[in-house]
Amino acid sequence: MLARLSWKQVRGSRLLMGLLSAAAISWLVFAILIYLHFNTGAIELLNLVVSRLVPINSRFFLTFLGIQAVLAFFLVLLLVPPVFSRDLAHQALAYYLSRPLSKLEYAWGKLAVAAGLLSAVTWIPGLLLFGLQAGLEGQGWGRQHAHIAVALFLGSLIWMAVIALPAAALSTWMRRRLSATAALLGWFFVPGIIAGIINRGLTTPWGNLFSPLSLARIAWLALFQITTPSAHPVLHHGRMPLQAIKPVPAWCAYLTITMLAAVCIAILWRRLEPIRGVRG
């Protein structure tokens, strides 16, 4: 019911359609890249060399997830603040919570559309690509690379936790759509800058724990089993020899993301109060 209402409130948005179209196009491009590997006719027609085509491996799927994650972030910006701010700015929460509806059901109802659309641009198309590759390649490729499928799914969930939960918490905190959107942009970019300053200033990778983007990337790299040092965020700058800096362990990133999610849920829980203040 609430999901239906949330969908009704956002479905007419051109920006939403634009983002979903961009996600579909991105998927199509990756699907074509996979297909090219197996279509000798197309390879000959386009005069391509198979060995010079983009290799279909963990990094390929990580790149796909990275692109979709950017689109997912904009989807969250578009979807999450309005569904909460409409109710909170107009004091409508009491209508819901005076009825047989719990806070959890309310929050889930409001986030269901965002969760559905985020799934539709992240792990669902990711697994479809994986299935396409596994089907075309055959010979047990799917089984041998099952960790990629797991990484696509869990990596997407981690990304949703990193962007959607803070978005919900900030939206209930700020109550107004514009301020919530601005806060969300700030949340996403400002900690990244702080993390960069810490990393550069102290020549350490631990500043990454302050950046949601870096946290997600560390988790993704672990899930996709990509261990190349240069893939880690801090090591791009490399004032020190790359191999001398040990990247942040994945478990630290998982733990930080879990704590972040817990804090966001706590804020959400606290801010979803039907009544603001005591009137007497």
Binding site: Q91, A92, A94, S98
Partner: peptide, 14 residues
């Protein structure tokens, strides 16, 4: 809760 109704004091709507 299904058997209760509530009309809030303040201006509230969706």
């Amino acid at each position: 809760l299904a058997r209760l109704g509530y009309m809030p004091e303040y201006d509230a709507y969706i």
